[in-house]
């Protein structure tokens, strides 16, 4: 029986170390600086593009934050486990009384906290730009919340692949997941009108429900056009994220449980 106090101390220690690892690496700051530059650039774009400055800054700003955060989650996430094995730092960790599942959860939570800080920094810059152009709306934090839900899923996906394969394969698989997740919602509209048989239609719907749907977590346009989110939608999104993260962590745990650390 696992002692819950020890378990939380272990998960916290691994998470904190993962956080330290990221914030003490230059790559993290370079990515953050680049994203902030793009956010500032959205102000310049506002003058060049057709439409109001506010809408352009909101559109470009939220998209920039969404993409950069996703890229950070993917490219840091794919090395979460593999690099520990490659650099052999894992020998010192897993020879301690730390169940492997706690290690995975700690690494995952550590990266999620890095992404949260990253997201908050970028949101602060976007808020400043919006205040400057006179178009600030607190709804950008609603958009940020949904962006973060997506980041949690991407982190879990990257961690899952990192625990079973190399960074290159992990990157390809996680990017594929990201792309499928953002296009799967169009699948029924795209394919159903061309299929006549009931069986075919059912098969398409089953596939559609099995594929990840990350688009449901993208409310950037709703915020830009100030359209309210449907009632109950937030809870559904939170539940969906929780379910996805749990399944992925469980799968990663099972794959990693009996893995030889050569």
């Amino acid at each position: 029986m696992t002692n819950p106090v020890l378990m939380s101390a272990q998960v916290y220690a691994i998470g904190k170390n993962t956080f330290k690892e990221a914030v003490r690496s230059r790559v993290f700051y370079i990515l953050l600086a680049f994203a902030i530059c793009l956010l500032l650039f959205s102000y310049v774009l506002g003058f060049l593009a057709v439409g109001t400055i506010r809408k352009v800054v909101l559109d470009v700003g939220l998209s920039t934050i969404s993409y950069f955060s996703a890229m950070t989650a993917i490219f840091v996430g794919i090395g979460l486990i593999y690099q520990e094995i490659e650099k052999k730092t894992i020998y010192n960790i897993l020879s301690k009384p730390l169940p492997r599942s706690h290690f995975l959860v700690g690494r995952c939570l550590g990266l999620m906290s890095v992404l949260l800080v990253n997201l908050m920094a970028m949101m602060a810059v976007l808020s400043a730009v919006l205040v400057f152009v006179g178009g600030f709306t607190p709804r950008i934090f609603e958009a940020a919340f949904f962006i973060y839900l997506e980041l949690m899923i991407l982190t879990a996906v990257a961690l899952f692949f990192s625990s079973i394969t190399s960074p290159v394969v992990s990157a390809l698989c996680t990017i594929a997941f990201y792309l499928i997740g953002h296009t799967s919602s169009a699948l029924p509209d795209l394919l159903l009108p061309n299929i006549t048989s009931d069986f075919g239609k059912r098969a398409i719907l089953i596939i559609y429900h099995l594929l990840p749907d990350l688009n449901m977590l993208n409310i950037n346009n709703l915020v830009a056009y100030n359209i309210p989110v449907a009632a109950g939608f937030t809870w559904r999104a939170v539940l969906y994220t929780g379910l996805m993260v749990s399944i992925l962590l469980l799968a990663a745990g099972l794959a990693f449980k009996r893995r030889d650390l050569v």
């Binding site: 101390a9 220690a13 691994i14 170390n17 330290k20 650099k87 052999k88 730092t89 010192n92 960790i93």
Partner: peptide, 18 residues
């Protein structure tokens, strides 16, 4: 092989927490 961004004391503290 250790996390080279940690100090000696941080390493002991981190591993001790485990």
């Amino acid at each position: 092989y250790f996390y080279d961004y940690l100090t000696g004391a941080e390493l002991l503290s981190f591993l001790g927490r485990l």
